[in-house]
Simulated assay, not measured.
Amino acid sequence: MTAPPAIAADPRSWRRAFADLLAGLRARELWALLAWQDIKQRYRRSSLGPLWITVGMAVTALALGVVNSALFGSSISTLLPSITTGLILWNFMNGCIVEGSETFIVNEGMIKQLPAPVSVYALRTVWRQALYLAHNLVVYVLVLAIFFGKLSQPYRLVDKDGALLHPGLGWGMLLAVPALMLVLLNGAWVVLLFGVVSTRFRDIPPVIQSFITMLFYATPIMWSMDQVRVMNQSSHEGFGSVAVNLLQLNPVYHFVEIVRAPLVGQQQSWTHWLVAGVVTVVGWSLAMLVLRNYRARVAYWV
């Protein structure tokens, strides 16, 4: 009697999706090495090598700090650390969004030749951005060393009456550690979700690059919410309150604040943590749903 033909297991299953993610995490030596090779390749034959990441961040932060301090009449000793920290975090998030949308497209050759979990390529992108972040944190340490005296005591980011009084640096700095871990965790689902969707629909990466600049200006990096609130208090038309409410709908703003506020001694609202937590749960749910349904098709789409 002939045995019935085996029925192929459905590739679209939660078990396979989680197995892919776990297998990718176990292959940390692979994606960590690939990410470091990406950085070495980018700065090959350069005298400073990856230190150019730090130099570029330092020059950009200094220029924006000086210009914005002159424009808004704020003290550079408090504004520059805030801008520097915001830029460091933005660079990581921007890299996860923009480069994450092309993570499978640029790895076409490896995907077709190397039998590795799909999540390996996403983790490669996230770890590369994390290495950039680590290089840029050197700039934060230098800025903190220079302006520690000012930041260690209560201060106002905006030198105007009615501006919010921030508590200054203290033990609250330790909150930056879990906050940074949460940002890294969100970077992973962003790369997975955007990467798979962009592999299927190749118009997504150009659309993301078109809107990323608008997102940058809508996030308090070069400016602060303190400035908007002060403008709201001096305005008689109520436009400032509307602007504050609209800007708070930007999820990137909340992720920036949960890390930046402890690092520069600013007052922090637990609303930021609540929004970041909700976005984390929703984002990973969507990423795992996409990974479940389309993980097996990525190799055919690239």
Results as ranks from 00 to 15, higher is better:
G86P: 04
F148H: 06
E108S: 11
T125K: 13
G56I: 01
S119C: 03
F92A: 13
D159I: 03
S75V: 03
V118R: 01
E108L: 07
L71T: 13
Y155I: 08
F148Q: 12
I111Q: 03
F147K: 05
S69F: 13
A122W: 01
L89E: 06
L51S: 14
N91L: 15
S82C: 05
S82K: 12
G168R: 11
M93R: 00
L169R: 00
V143G: 01
V98N: 07
W90H: 05
P154K: 09
P167Q: 10
T54F: 01
V59P: 00
Y121R: 01
M110G: 09
G95L: 06
R128W: 07
L79I: 12
V66S: 06
L142H: 02
L142I: 10
W52V: 06
G109Y: 10
K112G: 15
L165R: 11
S77H: 13
A163E: 07
F92S: 03
L87Y: 06
V139H: 01
S75F: 15
E108Y: 13
L51M: 10
L80R: 03
P50R: 04
I88F: 07
T54Y: 02
S119D: 01
C96S: 11
Q113S: 07
G162Y: 08
A58D: 00
Q129V: 04
I88G: 01
L144W: 05
L164F: 09
F147T: 02
G162E: 09
V143A: 04
I111H: 01
I105S: 06
W127P: 00
R124A: 02
L51R: 05
G95Y: 02
G65L: 02
G170S: 13
L137W: 07
D159P: 01
E102V: 10
L131H: 10
S69M: 07
L114I: 15
N94F: 08
A63H: 01
T60H: 03
M57L: 10
V120D: 00
G65C: 04
V158P: 00
L157H: 02
L137T: 05
S101D: 02
Q153D: 11
N91K: 08
V138T: 12
G56H: 00
W52R: 09
I111S: 13
G65Y: 00
P167L: 11
L114R: 15
G73P: 00
Q153T: 04
R156S: 09
H135W: 12
Q129K: 12
I105D: 07
W52A: 12
K150L: 07
N91H: 05
Q129W: 11
A122T: 03
H135T: 11
S152V: 14
H166E: 06
